[in-house]
Nucleic acid binder design. Structure first.
Lengths: 215, 215
DNA sequence: GTCTATAACCTGATAGAC
DNA sequence: GTCTATCAGGTTATAGAC
């Protein structure tokens, strides 16, 4: 089989694994389910990825990497143009994730649910993924926020960045439930609506007065 | 064996299951791990709980039920005394969860991580748990927030309640990571600090101006 | 590179003795 | 109520033919 078909096999495994991880979780998904869904042989997983653990890492980093590259590129544009405002920082942080989640949802599932589990999955591979794939982004946005919010202490910046991330993680993980909770009033797939609501809340939360005495 | 010892066996199973679910997740935890950890016989789980699924439900509802009873009792006090402010509503919502998570952490683990997975666990039993155990609470707090924030549309109230819940869920799930992200600056086990930071951010987020034209 | 076959082991659940 | 023994089926990973 030529190289094009190899890539096809690898990608078919990644696509099937992604779909099943999103629907049922990592532990609940067996390699047999993945390979039969991808219409490849069971042994192909170990040939291409060596182990289930490495497959898990590949599934996540395939989506996280371009998402975070987009975040950092946007942040750099903001910084060189000196047009940084809280809104533009939040947009640079939120939009790449929402684009990815909504852009891929026509696969017939919401990849957001899989991404939302990034912080809650106890699976060992996840913990190292957060550090290696998210550390740089968190560090850069913490700096950008600290610059945009000079009235806050460093501790407050970290707390508020944490909440700002939590809003996104929960929207990815449980956004579908919003439709139900609101009796159909909310459409969690309306990108502009999601972004506007998130940025409005986060901007106000981040801008709240400092609780600490001025230095 | 008398009734006191029965209760002891049942509780030992619940305690062990809770600990292991928190550490490794539901799917990754086998009944054999649970029973050997609890020092009871393997068959005892099926005798007392009928199935792993019912055990999972029992583990969660044992913690969720008193937590939500406390929430609703606090909210009722606020409403009868007509002292409802945004801060007191938020305190009534956040404090019972934080009390539970921090009160039980001396078991040698953070139960918060297990609670944080309530919204992200794909395990079937979880979805029905959210509806049955959290539906009533969400409905009541949505009403209380709508009354406290008359400038918002119903849709905005739901979005902002969703973000307010997300902040809590992410703090439960990933609070430990904050210590690392902040290079030790933040102590996520300081109850008053956690509450103060959460309420400050959420109060500002909820109070942000409406994005919709007045009716 | 891809396949079949299989090793070695773990899973939830239950029947039946005590 | 608690135990042992066992069922029927699942799991990852790999050896070896093609």
């Amino acid at each position: 089989m030529n190289e094009a078909n190899v890539r096809e096999t690898k990608d078919r495994i990644l696509d099937a694994a992604e779909r099943l991880f999103a629907l049922h979780g990592i532990e609940a998904t067996s390699l047999r389910q993945i390979t039969s869904d991808a219409k490849v042989n069971l042994a192909a997983v170990n040939y291409h990825f060596n182990s289930k653990d490495e497959l898990v890492r590949s599934v996540y980093s395939r989506r996280i990497r371009p998402m975070n590259e987009s975040r950092i590129a946007r942040l750099q544009v903001l910084e060189t143009n000196e047009t940084t405002t809280l809104e533009t920082i939040l947009q640079a942080f939120y939009e790449p994730t929402i684009d990815m989640a909504l852009g891929l949802q026509n696969h017939g599932f919401t990849i957001g649910q899989m991404m939302g589990r990034l912080y809650t999955e106890p699976h060992g591979a996840m913990q190292s993924l957060i550090v290696t794939e998210m550390g740089e982004v968190a560090r850069r946005f913490a700096l950008a926020l600290a610059r945009a919010l000079p009235h806050l202490s460093q501790r407050e910046v970290f707390w508020r960045l944490h909440f700002t991330i939590g809003m996104l993680a929960h929207t990815m993980a449980a956004g579908e439930k919003l439709k139900h909770l609101s009796h159909g009033l909310i459409n969690p797939h309306d990108k502009q609506e999601v972004l506007r609501q998130m940025i409005t809340y986060a901007k106000a939360g981040l801008s709240a007065p400092s609780l600490e005495p001025a230095p």
